[in-house]
Design a binder for these strands. Structure first.
Ligand SMILES: [Zn+2]
Ligand SMILES: [Zn+2]
Ligand SMILES: [Zn+2]
Ligand SMILES: [Zn+2]
Lengths: 132, 132
DNA sequence: AACTGGTATGTTATCTTATTACATAAGTTG
DNA sequence: CAACTTATGTAATAAGATAACATACCAGTT
């Protein structure tokens, strides 16, 4: 889990597709981009994504039903991550926020809630698009 | 926007279905529950939901593709809202958090990002289900 | 090499969620 | 009433995700 993961061919193809992309991709867009590499069915993409999500190399954007490669260079453990998603250009910024993490932790502690995954997604317009 | 909204028949039916429900409902589940009231097509639900979301009377849970009635008694303006979603029993707790709101506001301010909507969803297991 | 268990793949069909397109009805204003 | 806006009804289709089943591949063992 800590060391770099050996990816299978399909996993590597899916990860590369996401890493190359300028913005989040839906599973079906990934599928289309990998037709030439022999991809035929959605499941090939979803299965690869499942592993990549496990490994923390890819994140799912719940409000978009789409996926992005992790922005951190050495995709290790990260705490709570937040995404700012531009609705104009599609660009996504990934950042960690320990204050939000603490705040979530406070609430769950007070309420006896055991968190498994927390989603923070800010939709809006990025600086570039505002100055366009 | 501030006053209570006059709901159309369809909107009222959809809102009631959500208000009665013990946990979030998908659009298609709402449709099924409103068959006897004359609902036939998904669009009838989605159109009502669109308005109810506008009015702030209903929230969408992005990580579930489902909807809940707002938990606040007099559904007025609320700031940033967060949801804790139990994956065992489906119960959802809605709460506001000004600290997270401030933190989001700080980030967007620093980065020239103009936010339109922020999603905070904590998935996990609720106290009830843990003590079961 | 043959056996075994675990993981990865390929393929088809199906299910769930959401939207497009087009026609009709109902309210509102001048 | 005419013009306009908003709400509805219905069918078809798009987009996202999973179920089921068959194969293949890759250790480790006998
Ligand atoms: Zn990351
Ligand atoms: Zn942008
Ligand atoms: Zn609310
Ligand atoms: Zn629970």
């Amino acid at each position: 889990m800590t060391a770099r993961h050996e990816l299978t061919r399909n996993q590597a193809l899916v990860f590369d597709a996401l890493a190359k992309a300028e913005s989040p991709l839906s599973a079906y867009t990934i599928l289309d981009r990998l037709r030439d590499d022999g991809f035929r069915a959605p499941l090939q993409v979803y299965r690869a994504l499942e592993k990549l999500l496990d490994y923390g190399m890819v994140h799912r954007l719940e409000s978009l039903n789409a996926f992005v490669a992790c922005a951190h260079p050495h995709c290790g453990e990260h705490g709570l991550i937040a995404f700012a998603i531009c609705e104009k250009c599609g660009q996504v910024s990934e950042f960690s926020d320990t204050v939000i993490e603490q705040q979530v932790s406070d609430w769950t502690g007070r309420n006896g809630f055991k968190p498994s995954k927390t989603t923070v997604e800010i939709r809006g317009t990025c600086a570039n698009c505002l100055n366009g």
